[in-house]
């Protein structure tokens, strides 16, 4: 069974020989400084170079045993394509948005429709996905998208956005509909370029920040629109939600993705009970992966596997300083079952 077959079967609920272990890329950053130095594919240059990006993610797959190819190494590509100013960071810091294109939500109509083959770094990502899917046909390549509300917080100051959720809901819905349509178009392009599945990360759309009512109104519906289109193209979807999800169990039951990926604060047993219909992915603490002992990483991974997590994965993006042997301790735990 190839790594690609195993992951896709796991997501479809078909029988597999063992649990896959992945780190999807995008917000769930999958890169490491040791390997950057080894391959001479270093941040920040890699972020704008499809070939180096591909080389670094292949090396990550080979050196750490992570069973996918995870690009890009940040969650700024869509926001940048919409006109957000990005600072590329350094050897260990991911790119980030430093200047928002929107000063108020009502100006969302000034945003230009995305052309995934032209705008910002989107063509670079598509090119990289193409290289990876051709070079490594047996390894799954996720297409990474940012959820509409989180994307909105990269286009406008989050404080402003969160205030208008209640004050100007119609403008917010206008913005979110626009972003959803455009992200769907980018998602289609990712799939056309060779992505095997779609991972949507929605770090700002957490139950902790929004609570159940606003999550239902401003997150659930738009995620489902994206998921629906990806399903029509025959690709499974994983949604990553940050923070504690206990306040949004009810709306999460209505999420149409095959799988939910959760943060390290989340108790998997409770989630399984509260959201019985979903595959669960997670949730090895990235703090533990970076600073803990190898043995503890192994133990936590084993506990998750014994519990029956459907996909073993870090709970968040990996710090570039995470030692390779710690990541290996996690991947080997899955492979030794």
């Amino acid at each position: 069974m190839t790594e690609k077959e195993r992951l896709l079967k796991a997501l479809r609920g078909e029988s597999i020989d063992r649990t896959p272990v992945i780190c999807p890329g995008g917000m769930m950053t999958t890169a490491n400084r040791e390997i950057m130095i080894q391959t001479n594919c270093r941040w920040p240059a890699v972020h704008r170079d499809a070939k180096k990006m591909a080389a670094l993610s292949i090396a990550m797959h080979e050196e750490t045993g992570i069973e996918n190819l995870g690009i890009p190494f940040c969650m700024t590509v869509e926001a940048e394509a919409f006109g957000g100013e990005v600072e590329d960071g350094d050897e260990i810091t991911t790119p980030s948005i430093v200047n928002y294109p929107l000063k108020s939500v009502e100006h969302w109509r000034d945003l230009k429709e995305l052309n995934p083959y032209k705008d910002g770094r989107l063509p670079t990502i598509l090119e990289c996905i193409g290289i990876l899917s051709q070079k490594m046909p047996d390894v799954p390549v996720p297409g990474n998208l940012v959820g509409p509300l989180s994307l909105a917080t990269s286009l406008i100051d989050a404080t402003i956005l969160f205030k208008v959720l209640r004050r100007e809901p119609e403008n917010v819905h206008g913005l979110l509909r626009f972003l959803t349509d455009n992200s769907i178009r980018y998602g289609e392009a990712l799939i056309n370029s060779g992505a095997d599945l779609i991972v949507i990360s929605d770090p700002s759309a957490t139950g902790e920040i929004l609570g159940p009512e606003l999550f239902e109104e401003f997150v659930l519906h738009y995620l489902n629109m994206m998921i629906c289109r990806m399903h029509m193209l025959g690709k499974p979807v994983i949604v990553h939600i940050c923070g504690n999800v206990s306040s949004i169990y009810k709306p999460l039951n209505e999420l149409d993705s095959e799988c939910i990926s959760v943060d390290s604060v989340v108790n998997m047993k409770e989630v399984r009970h509260a959201i019985p219909g979903k595959k669960l992915m997670g949730n090895v603490s990235t703090l533990l992966l970076q600073n803990g002992r190898e043995n503890n990483v192994r133990k936590v991974s084993k506990t998750l596997l014994n519990f029956g997590v459907d996909i073993l994965a870090p709970a968040c993006g990996l710090s570039a300083k995470t030692p390779v042997r710690h990541i290996k301790a996690m991947t080997e735990a899955a492979k030794s079952v």
Partner: peptide, 14 residues
């Protein structure tokens, strides 16, 4: 007590 969340706090502060 998880009755209010972040958007509510911001508006109350305003």
């Amino acid at each position: 007590n998880e009755e209010y969340f972040v958007p509510e706090i911001l508006l109350c502060a305003d």
